[in-house]
């Protein structure tokens, strides 16, 4: 019996030790800084943050650690950073999907703009309209004509059910006059939806630029769904050039940046903005991002915060429309 009690004692002690957290506070930074990425390891955001971490750690004087907290379309990681200590040691790679869209869909989600202090805006990922290479359509007008000539709904891949690319794609289809379509959700813009394009399940899909690079001749990108051509893929025409303007500006892109929990000391924020902000504009970083087809658009903290507000305003009606469809 005594042996059993002794063993139980060990178990309880070890169990309790797991929950212990020690205090730490001094000159910034004096311990490693963590960047939470709310997506899978190996995803484009993850690669971008790991690249930044490896380049900027020396300059910061402390290692930068990337941590993936995945789930709930990014909202689990976002919430985790909101609840983290506001000491500058936990940062979030915030994305429009969890930061703005998830909150519009579910106001109870547990965070809003005021819970975060912006460091800077960093990524602006345009979405595309892509078809398989043997599809008869070669541009937006011929795609619209083809789609409206079908006697069945056209299957269009949307990256996820409640996502920015879905809203952009549906806005585009409405604006271009495609009436009979069926949105088919996936778990992201790569690679399952492109595979569904190749296996013939989908007629068209919402995509991202890197698909163009990876699948090469197997798929055809008909349009980039944003206002301006992308510098490293400037052979691809925009939808606007082809006569379809949804008028969302930068909000039609999947944007991301870096934030800290609100209440983080200004000194720590300034240090992080200076060091990390410098490194994201070096050729070493930019070249690696271009190789990954991740478009970088640096914007300062105030400009970045303004983008949050503008996105919420513009996306709100689309969200309400989707919620109404859900109820019906």
């Amino acid at each position: 019996m005594n042996r059993i009690i002794a063993r139980l004692g060990v178990v309880v002690c070890v169990a309790l030790a797991a929950f212990a957290v020690g205090p730490a506070q001094a000159e910034f930074p004096e311990k490693p800084v963590t960047i939470v990425v709310p997506w899978q390891a190996g995803s484009s955001p993850d690669v971008a943050m790991r690249t930044l971490a490896s380049l900027a750690s020396d300059d910061l004087g402390q290692p930068i650690v990337v941590q993936n907290i995945v789930g709930g379309s990014g909202s689990v990681g976002t919430l985790a950073v909101k609840n983290a200590a506001a000491d500058g040691y936990t940062l979030l790679n915030n994305w429009v999907a969890p930061h703005v869209v998830a909150r519009l869909f579910n106001p109870e989600i547990g965070y809003n703009d005021d819970d975060f202090a912006p460091l800077f805006g960093l990524i602006a990922l345009p979405f595309t309209l892509a078809v398989r290479a043997d599809h008869p359509a070669t541009d937006v007008p011929s795609f619209v004509a083809w789609a409206n000539a079908q006697d069945r709904p056209v299957n269009v891949g949307i990256c996820a059910a409640l996502s920015v690319p879905r809203m952009v794609m549906e806005e585009f289809l409405r604006a271009s006059g495609v009436e009979n379509y069926k949105p088919v959700p996936f778990n992201g813009c790569m690679p399952d939806n492109v595979k569904a394009l190749l296996d013939g399940s989908l007629d068209a899909t919402t995509g991202v630029l890197i698909a163009e690079k990876i699948f090469g001749d197997a798929i055809r990108t008909l349009a980039v769904l944003t206002d301006d051509r992308v510098s490293f893929a400037d052979h691809l025409p925009t939808a606007k050039e082809q006569g379809v303007d949804i008028g969302w500006g930068k909000t039609s892109q999947g944007w991301a940046g870096l934030v800290a929990p609100a209440g983080t000391p200004e000194a720590a924020l300034e240090k992080l903005r200076a060091v990390l902000g410098k490194h994201v504009q070096t050729p070493a970083f930019l070249d690696k991002m271009t190789a990954q087809f991740i478009p970088i658009e640096y914007s300062g903290p105030d400009e970045f915060r303004a983008l949050w507000t503008r996105s919420a305003e513009l996306l709100e009606p689309a969200v309400q429309r989707l919620l109404k469809e859900k109820k019906e």
Partner: peptide
């Protein structure tokens, strides 16, 4: 992701 960083793009190409 590791391959992409080195400018090697997996896929048919």
């Amino acid at each position: 992701g590791g391959l992409l960083i080195h400018g090697v793009t997996p896929g048919p190409m």
